[in-house]
Computed example of a mutant assay.
Amino acid sequence: MTAETHDTTPRQAPDWLWYGGVLVAGAIWYALYTHLIPFSEWATALFPVARDSHTGEAIAFFIYDVPKVLLLLTAIVFVTGVLRSWFSPEKTRAILAGKREIWGYPLAALLGVLTPFCSCSSVPLFIGFVSAGIPLGVTFSFLIAGPMVGPVGLGLLYGLVGWQVATIYLVFGFTIATVAGFILGRMKLERYLQDWVRELNTGGPGSDLPDEQLTMVDRLKIGVEQVREIVGKVWIWVLVGIGIGAAIHGYVPEAMMLRIMGGEAWWSVPAAVIVGVPMYTNAAGVIPIVEALLGKGAALGTTLAFMMSVIALSLPETIILKQVLTLRLIAIFLAVVAAGILATGFLFNFFL
């Protein structure tokens, strides 16, 4: 009697199917993106409200921005997911550990801009950097730039408010991350790390890095997985952010917005930072709000200060960092970054 054996290994799709699938998905994405305006106008007309009313404006804003942001987010996350296959946390740590400290700050900020690490990765990255012997200030430059000036936020900012604002945000965000990291590094704050972090052994950086040879199809799979994971987590915040933006766009009078967030009110910048810190959202959620604020005439500096504070000084991320930082170090970190954000807001409101 012979026993039949069955191969239970799942069959892998051929490479050509992956390449073709990406091309087809890209064509569908482009077709959807270029028809958003007629779709939003058609959908808004289905509601029993006047198109030029407050409610009509809010509905049109919401229906147009929801698919727009989700389409942009999907494309950006996919591309950055593919890039992430070349910039793993281990490789990033190895690159930073091998540089002189003075060059480490801008390099760390640049890597934070290029690599799509979300705020939930802050704690393991921080531990890994410290255990590799990377200076604390250099680590802070990376952690500031990562969530505040990451590729997802920049891509959405470019798609929604234009390349000029996105470029300005990139330059000032990069500068804040570099300068704040340098200042924190000069302050010699290692003694304010949690005891268990300071006691970590500092092994040689990159000595245990796996030699992974990924094919292009493997990288495409990583991009698809990133879309499934990240978009699946943040879509609800996209809806919340766009909902707030739609309410601002449709109902908040321009005169009121100019009084609160206009360049003439000196207190508008610190008020925007104070309001932004406790908000629990991310780039995908806050950028539609920024779009609506700018559309209502809010000052650019105040609006950018609000956006930076929401992303870089969010309360939930601060709570997570409490696992590795003492309260004193967290307070110093928040003060230095907030000072940079305030300076950015005041400079823009003064010169523009």
Rank of each mutant, 00 (worst) to 15 (best):
A97L: 10
P135E: 08
V165P: 01
V130P: 03
F142G: 03
V130N: 02
P135M: 05
L125W: 14
V165I: 11
Q164V: 13
M148I: 14
P135R: 10
E101P: 07
V161Q: 01
L136V: 09
I95F: 11
Y158P: 00
L107S: 06
L156P: 05
R93D: 04
Q164W: 15
G159A: 02
L96E: 05
V123D: 07
C120S: 11
G112M: 03
G162S: 08
G146C: 12
T115R: 08
L111D: 00
A132H: 03
F142H: 04
S141A: 12
L136C: 15
G98Q: 13
V130K: 03
V123T: 13
I168F: 15
I144P: 04
L96I: 07
P124W: 10
A145W: 01
A108H: 00
P116F: 15
F140I: 11
G159V: 00
A145I: 03
V149F: 14
R93G: 04
I95A: 14
G155C: 02
V123Y: 09
T115E: 07
S121K: 12
C118M: 14
F126K: 09
T115C: 09
I102E: 07
F129R: 05
L114T: 07
L156D: 00
A145N: 01
F140W: 07
F126I: 14
G137M: 02
P135D: 06
G162F: 14
T167P: 00
R100N: 09
F140S: 03
K99M: 15
P116S: 10
V152K: 03
V152G: 00
G146N: 08
L125V: 14
A132Q: 02
L111I: 07
P151V: 14
W103P: 07
V149I: 15
S121G: 15
A108N: 02
A109H: 03
